[in-house]
Structure formats: C-alpha cells, structure tokens
C-alpha cells in the first residue's frame, strides 16, 4: 500500500548549525507514530516544518501524493497541529477560540459536537470564560477539542500530555484509538515514553539530524536502551 505521507531529505539549520540534516520517513493511513529523541535533537522543529510553521531549507514532503511546502495553501486543510502551548488567544473565550479556528478552516460551527467534546474533556460550563483563566491542563484539553472539531487526515502533536493529569492522559489515549479507527494518522512527540509507546504503532528515533531508527511496536525499555546507545 502506498504511504499516506512521505518526508524526503528534509533539512533545517539555525545560525549555521544544522538541526535537521537529512530526515526521510513515511507514514501510513491510520498509523500512530511516536517521534522521540534527546532534548534539542529537532523534534519540535520537524513537526513545525511539517505543519508549515517553519520553512525547510531543503527537502520535500507529500500527503496523498500532493506536494507540501508549495506556495498554495489548500494542502494545509488536511493537517492539524497542536504545539507545546495550546495555540489559543487568551482574551477570547473557549467558544470564540474554537469558532475562530473553524472559520479559518472554512468549516461550519457544530454546537452539538462542541458541547459533546466539552463534556468529554471536562470543560462543560466553562466555554464562555476567557481562556486566560484556564490552567495549562485545561488549555491543553481545549486544544484537543479544537482538533476534535476540525476535519483532517494527519495530526502533528508536540508533547500533547505535557500539561495533562492522569485522567487527561487516559482520555487522550482513548482519543488516539478513536482517531486511528477513523484512519487518521498521528505523528507525536512525548517525553513520557511509557505513555508514548502505548499509543504508537512505530517509534522514530531522531538523532544527529536524521531518523536514526524506525522501531515497530517497541517497548519502553527498548526506547530507553536505544536512547542510551545514542548518548
């Protein structure tokens, strides 16, 4: 089966120091893939490049055979991104933030779905408060509702559990399973390797600017041992 997503020879430097040298990998539809590596290895940079927030110096990527990083913008409708921070405007309410997000994607507002996800993520009754009063965990949950409401094929999530409590992490694991059953593809990072491997079909080790290993269904100990060998 042809891969859904292909990244070819992606490279990026900061102040002449190459962070990504030659990153290539593929993802299949419905796959959940953990991107792991030491601090500063370029995980966030890679996700930001794929999400069109940063521009690569070299390389190309394609989704469903359609080239990414092109001057047009329609290719961005197939993907969503949730960063370290929740990508929300603190002065706007939860409802206004998510409504804005959908308008930018030219999607109609679905009040019923909004209420359903507010309930699921434990934010019911807080939707008309400005999100500046939310805790980091609540912001992260709202960021996940943003992804739930959007239509997409591939999601890039950078440390999605970083601000979540145990319940939140469990909820996200359930969400990952649901997304995969819908043939949605997920590329994510997590320093919580135990949680990460439990959600991943594969793990990609990013080290020294390249994908140093591609590990199908790894265990947490395998990842820790592999990271140790890279040190």
């Amino acid at each position: 089966m042809a891969p859904l997503f292909t990244a070819d020879h992606i490279g990026k430097s900061f102040h002449l120091r190459p962070v990504l040298k030659d990153v290539s990998f593929t993802l299949s539809a419905g796959e959940s893939v953990l991107l792991f590596g030491r601090n500063g290895c370029g995980k966030t940079t890679l996700l930001k490049i794929l999400a069109a927030i940063m521009r690569p110096e070299k390389g190309q990527a394609s989704l469903n055979g359609q080239a990414l990083f092109t001057p047009g913008y329609r290719w961005r409708s197939a993907m969503v991104y949730l960063g370290h921070r929740a990508n929300l405007y603190p002065a706007l309410t939860a409802r206004e933030n998510l409504s804005l997000s959908l308008r930018l994607r030219r999607q109609a507002w679905d009040e019923e779905a909004f209420q359903k996800y507010l309930d699921r993520y434990g934010l019911a009754g807080r939707e008309d408060e400005p999100v500046r009063v939310y805790s980091e965990g609540m912001l992260q949950r709202l960021g996940l509702i943003r992804l739930e409401l959007a239509a997409w094929e591939i999601a890039y999530l950078d440390e999605p559990t970083a601000a979540l409590d145990v319940d939140g992490a469990g909820l996200l694991a359930e969400t990952f399973r649901r997304w995969r059953s819908m043939s949605r593809t997920i590329l994510f990072t997590s320093h919580d390797l135990g949680w990460g491997v439990a959600q991943a079909d594969r793990a990609l080790l990013l080290s020294r600017g390249v994908i140093a290993d591609d590990m199908p269904r790894p265990g947490e100990k395998d990842l820790v041992a592999r990271l140790g060998r890279e040190a």
Binding site: Y73, M79, H84, R85, N87, L88, L100, L104, R105, V131
Partner: peptide, 19 residues
C-alpha cells in the same frame, strides 16, 4: 505580541488560507 501568547499565531499559519 498577543499573537505570540500561547503561540496563537501558529493557528493562523497552519490554517488553509492565503497568508
């Protein structure tokens, strides 16, 4: 400056719209 709070600007950049 307010676009950088909570990295909200990334929401605009990742959206399928003409920048």
């Amino acid at each position: 400056g307010r676009e950088n709070e909570q990295d909200a600007y990334d929401l605009l950049l990742t959206a399928p719209l003409d920048r």
